[in-house]
Design a protein around this nucleic acid. Structure first.
Lengths: 337, 337
DNA sequence: GGGTGCACTGGGAGCGCTCCCACTGGAAGC
DNA sequence: GCTTCCAGTGGGAGCGCTCCCAGTGCACCC
């Protein structure tokens, strides 16, 4: 009968009692704190084992005012932006770095109003020890909420409006410049750009890099025209480009998805890649390798982005003051250019 | 000077005092519980607004013994398996469903020993209200830990060894059968299969579906040969297939990545798709649409998988006893078959 | 031989919330 | 007029942990 009791988790008090010590000593032993005799330390360890004791993280959190978790917030209108494998890679990196610091990962996809409200509440209630914030659009209200929160915040990619105190970004300008220079070095002179969302800093920066390289080469850049970072968007933009500027011989697309879309349109239009039109993408996701022809593209260290965000956050949580970080990008030459 | 104090979050006691009520009443008002007069309820709401009060989730968790979070555990040797966009979609679905129930999402990538240990501790310490478990390999130790945990557990995809009480799966057998039947209906008679990992239930079930359809059509299935669900693996398997069985005219690949690899090998070998060899994949991820030619494939409702797992978990947390669920798959015909 | 120091110890006061329970008073029932 | 009931109320005991602090000894020193 006694066995039937819904076996509650043993508490630290029970461990202490069994070990014949006070709760304080048991607590210290558990946390490898000093001022515990060897004998008692061992007695506590034995009791822990016998009872199958596991500390209650909630109680610990209440007492220490530390939750033991960090949040990764991905903000955006459309939940499907998250389905981009880009975020999966960020998560892999962040998760690994948090694991080292023994922090758990809370993932918040703030797509709906309700989602944003929950994130705001999380921030204000200190429901996590710190926050990594990603994919902020120009007018994202979460940016302000985050800055006001009494909590460490690391931005992933700079927001458009302001430069936050702590962020990790990728060298978008440099990557776009390298991509464009590559096209120019191939002898292409009518190089167009297919832009991503121009209400994101990444979209803008990549256009800037393209423009800089064009001007430096004495060529005329096409004016910026907002896109959406999707395959369909890239295909549509390429169609417009072919109509307006039929002699185009080079294309820099703001990401691989759009580049893949451009390839499709070019193929359907009977243009050969790279013979007629050379194409360069950005990201170096799986799609770049699978595309036909395989895409020349700018690789950004996505996993490192996640990892460094998490490391920066851990440093902040530990009271340090790390410096912002900009990760290098690298041109990967394949067949499309 | 007084302003300089590190502005602590106001507590419920302070709200109560300001509203001129007891803490009990304030608590009830906050949780829209009955037994609060209209006047006091409003007084509490006013005090909350004036003070900018936000309830402390940790304290609430300790008192209610509910953490307000559900964990999604993705288990596997290699952290990069998670970079598969498949999981991103599962997360989108799960996240949406959890949001409805006002639960937070904890994401645990259990790749290293350390990661698995942390998950085990999370399970034993009730660090979450429930767990969704995915990608279990044959001998995954987490499966047992999870079953032993005093906590609701929902499996995503059935494990190989046992059938858990609560799971959500996709109709892998039916999908594979439909894919194979489609190839047969096209008049293909030498249809091979490129298998995924045979230490996963999905990999096995998809082979079973293929074999069933072949036998039913009076054709001879190729023997199962383990793969790895990657593009490179698919390319390699296709090469072997071409060498051993040069007259192959149909291929069922266990997922889109492998199908894409097969397409690459076929292209390099000068075989036309679908004229010489028809190819069908499984999953219907982005890669299926981007592939050249676009892949005929079996669509599985990935986001729904995540959503239903989360819903099932919420039901369990609420003390209900939901039934296992098998989600239907659907053949999507494109150009490759 | 009486300090002075220090490793060790356990009591107790929180952390901020929920929830049980005993108590009030006014409305309803006989 | 008297119970009976129940919405409304606040006191207080937790939830399981950390950590401050006052109190023990015992070695070590002049």
């Amino acid at each position: 009968m006694a066995e039937d009791a819904p076996r509650r988790q043993p508490t630290l008090d029970e461990v202490a009692e069994r070990a014949g010590v006070s709760r304080s000593v048991a607590s210290r032993a558990l946390n490898n704190a000093p001022h515990v005799s060897r004998a008692k330390r061992e007695a506590v360890e034995r009791a822990v084992r016998q009872l199958g004791y596991v500390p209650n993280p909630t109680a610990r959190a209440l007492a220490t005012r530390q939750t033991g978790a960090a949040a990764l917030v991905v903000s955006g209108e459309d939940p499907s932006i998250f389905a981009d494998p880009f975020f999966a890679q960020v998560i892999v990196g962040a998760s690994a770095a948090l694991e080292e610091a023994d922090l758990h990962l809370m993932l918040c996809l703030a797509a709906s109003d309700r989602g944003r409200k929950r994130v705001a509440e999380l921030l204000r209630s200190r429901g996590a020890d710190g926050v990594m914030l990603m994919a902020l659009r120009e007018d994202d209200p979460l940016a302000r909420t985050a800055e006001e929160a009494q909590m460490p915040v690391v931005f992933g990619g700079r927001p458009v409006a302001s430069t936050p105190r702590w962020y990790v970004d990728v060298d978008n300008v440099g990557g776009a410049r390298a991509a464009t220079e590559h096209l120019v070095s191939l002898g292409r002179t009518r190089v167009a750009a297919i832009c991503g969302r121009l209400d994101t800093e990444a979209g803008r920066a990549r256009y800037r890099g393209y423009r800089d390289a064009m001007l430096a080469a004495g060529l005329e850049p096409v004016p910026p025209r907002g896109g959406d970072f999707t395959e369909a968007g890239g295909a549509a933009a390429m169609a417009v480009l072919l109509a307006e500027q039929p002699d185009v011989d080079g294309v820099f697309a703001a990401n691989d998805n759009m580049a893949a879309g451009a390839l499709r349109t070019l193929r359907e239009a009977g243009r050969r890649v790279p013979a007629d039109v050379a194409v360069v993408g950005f990201d170096d996701l799986t799609v770049a390798r699978i595309a036909d022809p395989p895409l020349t593209t700018v690789r950004q260290p996505i996993e490192a982005l996640g990892r460094e965000m998490a490391r920066m956050l851990v440093a902040l949580v530990n009271g340090q003051d790390p410096s912002p970080l900009i990760l290098p990008t690298r041109l990967v030459v394949r067949s499309s250019a």
